[in-house]
Simulated scan of single mutants.
Amino acid sequence: MASVLADPDFELLCLVDSAAGARIMESALAGAARPLPVLVELGVEGGRTGVRGVDDALSLARLVAASPRLTLAGVEAFEGVFPQRRDDDSPERVRRWLDALPEFARRADAEGLFAEADEVIITAGGSSYPDLAADALLEPSGLSRPVRRIIRSGCYVTHDDLFMERASPLRSAADDDPLRPALTCHARVLSRPEPGRALLGVGKRDVSFDIDLPVPRVLVRGERRIPLTGTARVVALNDHHAFLDVTGTGPDTPAVGDVVELGLSHACTVFDKWPLIPVLNGEHRVVDAVRTLF
């Protein structure tokens, strides 16, 4: 860590949520060319990492600001540990909790804890509540330093068929011009071993399954695209196969050699599995590829 700080053009920000963590950073930074910019992390009670309240966060901020090897650069939070749904009181709980960010920034600034920083960074915003995070980050105003506000809602890049479609403020049920799912997986029908069952050549190693199973969208047969909505359902995955339950026995049901286009859930897991994702045009031809760094 100390060596990368020798490059003045390299911007490194690090989170801290404890005095022990700050002391480890200081030890690792012996001989560093410049102090390390640090964001104090605010966390949710019972959730993941992060200081559990503004008063404790300020105590940690004072320790960071007093260190010759660290610079207090701002505050970070991730509200995605709250239930990611819009049909209960979760949005209101998120709003109340996000109020801690501007409160911390105001109080830390009033104590002069950002004295060594050129700007104050305030960042939050998972993909389910970017609208609420943006509202919270509009405050505070009138600090002694310029404020850089960063929303980290990366799943907008692709959206999805289930997880983000349930939670995003730009889901189809909540917006006149919604995000549309852009992640699909094409899987060949390998076998029809039993009535009502097809086996696809895709499994846990290929598609996300940590929140929802893939959704059959379309049967691709040559130039034909046959909708599968309501007539097929992925019921299980193993390492290399998907188990597809099929209703009906007509000619437009999946047959060996056909391709099933699957919609996916939870883009983060897809990005983790596929470091290079092909991009299709409107005619479903591969025209580009996107490399993921996740």
Results as ranks from 00 to 15, higher is better:
52 R>D: 07
140 P>M: 09
5 L>Q: 02
89 D>K: 06
68 P>H: 03
192 R>A: 10
265 S>W: 02
259 V>Q: 03
215 V>Q: 02
157 V>W: 07
58 L>T: 04
69 R>W: 02
123 T>A: 03
3 S>L: 15
236 A>Q: 08
22 A>V: 08
151 I>F: 01
231 T>D: 05
291 R>L: 10
195 P>G: 08
140 P>I: 09
39 L>F: 12
173 A>N: 03
182 A>C: 05
239 D>S: 09
286 V>F: 03
49 T>Q: 13
117 A>D: 00
2 A>M: 10
284 H>C: 09
118 D>V: 14
109 D>R: 05
20 A>P: 00
238 N>G: 09
215 V>D: 02
65 A>T: 11
101 L>M: 07
7 D>I: 15
188 R>C: 09
178 P>W: 06
145 R>H: 07
146 P>M: 08
270 V>D: 03
227 P>K: 08
286 V>L: 00
234 V>Y: 07
219 L>A: 08
260 V>N: 04
294 F>P: 04
261 E>N: 05
52 R>V: 08
15 L>S: 13
77 A>F: 02
51 V>S: 05
63 L>K: 08
85 R>H: 03
28 A>N: 14
190 L>D: 12
225 R>Q: 14
75 V>N: 03
232 A>D: 03
250 G>P: 00
248 G>V: 14
129 Y>C: 00
180 R>N: 06
228 L>R: 06
203 G>R: 07
242 A>V: 14
223 E>D: 07
180 R>K: 11
149 R>Q: 01
97 W>L: 12
260 V>Y: 11
177 D>W: 14
262 L>S: 11
150 I>Q: 01
271 F>T: 08
153 S>R: 01
253 T>V: 15
285 R>T: 05
229 T>N: 00
187 A>Q: 12
177 D>Y: 14
151 I>M: 00
195 P>N: 09
254 P>H: 13
61 A>N: 03
39 L>H: 12
252 D>Y: 10
216 P>M: 12
90 S>M: 06
87 D>V: 09
158 T>F: 01
121 I>N: 05
56 D>C: 04
114 F>T: 06
176 D>K: 10
133 A>Q: 01
281 N>A: 03
268 C>Y: 12
16 V>P: 01
81 V>L: 13
252 D>N: 12
76 E>Y: 14
93 R>M: 11
110 A>N: 01
247 T>E: 14
80 G>P: 02
275 P>R: 11
289 A>P: 00
211 I>Q: 09
214 P>L: 12
220 V>H: 03
167 A>T: 10
